[in-house]
């Protein structure tokens, strides 16, 4: 059975495994700093999947890594930074569950929208997100180091997502402080 847990920041083997999972598939190599940037600040927005019946029930076989911050001081934006499932475990709905959990958490925390970028060629990821309601907002030319175009996808959660930031009010408080 697959179980899902938020990240345990003190557990170094989890950290290493996340890095391994992500590095294995993503075209863009990330430095340790990038992982730490997300995980240290938003450990509660990183979910891991474990195979309880597998050989290594302690080692995550899938993960999603997110952050949530105010966007120009006017809108709360959740961001899905990384997502990967070990190849042997794909196609069983694990990514869908991981993403769902993280979105639920970010929605609960008051995010107005969830954003992410994915390569135009990554049809699997596009299917995954678009079947969850994300729409493509723009295409970015040769966005990644491997030189493919990318899409920026957004899932609107509140009406604020649909108004240009120029026409939104400033937050009267810093929501980043409250959420973290």
């Amino acid at each position: 059975m697959i179980i899902y847990k938020p990240l345990d920041l003190e557990n170094l083997s989890q950290f290493k495994q996340i890095k391994k999972l992500i590095d294995a598939d993503l075209s863009e190599p990330y430095s340790i700093y990038v992982y730490r940037y997300f995980l240290n600040r938003w450990p509660e927005l990183a979910y891991l999947a474990f195979d309880q019946d597998g050989n290594e029930p302690e080692i995550p076989i899938g993960c999603v890594v997110c952050k949530s911050e105010s966007h120009r001081g006017r809108r709360m934006r959740g961001y899905i930074g990384m997502l990967a499932v070990e190849s042997g475990y794909r196609g069983q709905g694990i990514a869908k569950t991981l993403v769902t959990k993280s979105i639920e958490k970010m929605a609960k925390d008051g995010c107005d929208e969830i954003m992410l970028e994915t390569e135009v060629e990554n049809q699997i990821a596009l299917n995954l997100y678009e079947n969850m309601g994300f729409i493509r907002m723009k295409r970015m030319f040769r966005y990644y180091l491997n030189e493919g175009d990318a899409y920026k996808l957004i899932l609107p959660l509140t009406e604020k997502s649909c108004i240009r930031t120029t026409f939104l009010q400033d937050f009267t408080f810093d929501p980043n402080l409250i959420i973290n």
Binding site: M132, G133, I135, L155, P156, S161, I163
Partner: peptide, 24 residues
Amino acid sequence: KSPAKNNFTTNELLYNLRMKPFCS
């Protein structure tokens, strides 16, 4: 309508997001 099968968003929000450049 969006093929999304969850309740995170609504078709109205998706429409409004699409029209965001024109909203003002």
